[in-house]
Design a protein around this nucleic acid. Structure first.
Lengths: 111, 111
DNA sequence: GACGATAGTTCCATAATCCCGAACTGTCGA
DNA sequence: TCGACAGTTCGGGATTATGGAACTATCGTC
């Protein structure tokens, strides 16, 4: 159940967060992670036609940008959105993005 | 005064917009363009230690993502934020980002 | 008009980053 | 002990970013 290394709240930058969100696959992953916290990588990526090694990179980018935190749980990685940290550091930024991400990403043939 | 080609409002995607904003230089350029519309490339980039060929690429990315529109005005390019299009397409997304962009980008030794 | 200065773009080679198959690590269940 | 499963790491091919140098187009001046 130990957590993987992640940047502390105060060292998160807006540009990194936006860069992490600036990819349709990652945007969809973040949207799903926010909708249901505590799920694992593979469950959250279910249905996406993306190879696992690529997904692993996407999760790393999201973790290094401070959007999510990962904890090792047996052979799974449990994804937890860092909602508090982001809301504290960049108030008002994430909510409207995730509200919109939904409809759009489903219409782009991503799934 | 003719405008350079740009994507129509309805074909803008959230991921492209966030990708365009996910770079500290571009974030700063957008912030400045929003703060004072109708200025030219070089005036908006004043003080940034970035070569002009790189800036030209940044402006192109911002234009192709739909964040700004450029019109040729003599030997200048006049930058106009596409605030209406963005607000219509992605309501609530840009304002909080630009409100924050200010303080942060000035503290990262960018200038 | 010819000419230099100005504002940007384009070209191109280097550097950095992304993508994903294959091999690997670590854990669970039988 | 032995797979099977969840993810990561490695490696190299493809894509994208960077920035110097050359180029284009326009303005002001003589």
């Amino acid at each position: 159940m130990r957590p993987l290394p992640q940047p502390p709240r105060e060292s998160l930058t807006l540009a990194s967060v936006l860069h992490a969100l600036g990819d349709p696959v990652r945007l969809e992953l973040v949207r799903r992670a926010w909708a249901n916290p505590e799920l694992t990588c593979s469950v959250l990526a279910d249905g996406l036609d993306v190879p696992m090694s690529t997904l692993s990179n996407h999760w790393r980018i999201l973790r290094e940008a401070g959007l999510i935190s990962m904890t090792v749980d047996g052979r799974h990685r449990r994804i937890r959105p860092r909602a508090d940290d982001l809301h504290d550091r960049f108030p008002g930024v994430l909510d409207p993005i995730l509200r919109l991400g939904t409809a759009e990403s489903l219409n782009t043939g991503l799934l």
